[in-house]
């Protein structure tokens, strides 16, 4: 069980690590790259807290080996903001009070970011459907859906379209 080298682009920058083959992408990001914004809740795919964006697609980082992601372009929650400046999606979460304890928030933000990047016109039903894979125990989903709907303009959705 020798370590294996992995290389990715993470939030626009090259990164590399040497990991045990069994290391999940989530553990690699958190422990090797010290990007602890990616949270781990259940480690079996049901809570969504660990969601990151790999080559444009939102994925569970607890259900992907770091080795499987070798060579990929990865966005974590740390990659959404510009330094201390919140992204429009993050600002919308603040405006709509779409978080309380914040444990689920990184996974919800990365999921919503991937969704709106691909589907800036996602409606409330679609957003609800997609976020069914993310468990939030404290905020309640209504402000979260409102925050995502409100952030669509920043992804190119023209308000007033059907």
């Amino acid at each position: 069980m020798t370590n294996i080298p992995v290389r990715f682009t993470v939030n626009g920058r090259g990164a590399e690590a040497s990991v045990e083959p069994r290391t999940s992408l989530a553990d690699c990001l958190r422990r090797e790259l010290k990007l602890t914004g990616t949270h781990l809740g259940c480690e079996h795919g049901v809570c969504g807290a660990c969601t990151v964006v790999v080559d444009g697609a939102a994925v569970r980082a607890c259900l992907m080996l770091a080795a499987q992601a070798d060579g990929s372009d990865i966005i974590t929650v740390e990659g959404l903001s510009n330094g201390d400046e919140l992204s429009p999606l993050q600002a919308s979460f603040r405006k709509h009070h779409a978080l309380q304890c914040g444990f689920c928030t990184p996974g919800i933000l990365t999921t919503a970011h991937a969704l709106l990047t691909e589907e800036p016109d996602a409606d409330a039903d679609r957003i609800r459907d997609v976020l069914s894979g993310n468990i939030c125990r404290c905020t309640g989903y209504i402000p979260i859906i409102e925050a995502v709907l409100d952030a669509r303009a920043a992804y190119g959705y023209v308000t007033g379209e059907p």
């Binding site: 969504g48 969601t51 939102a58 259900l63 999921t111 969704l115 997609v130 069914s132 894979g133």
Partner: peptide
Amino acid sequence: VAHYQIRNR
């Protein structure tokens, strides 16, 4: 089948 992130893989 499953949720958005799982459907991606």
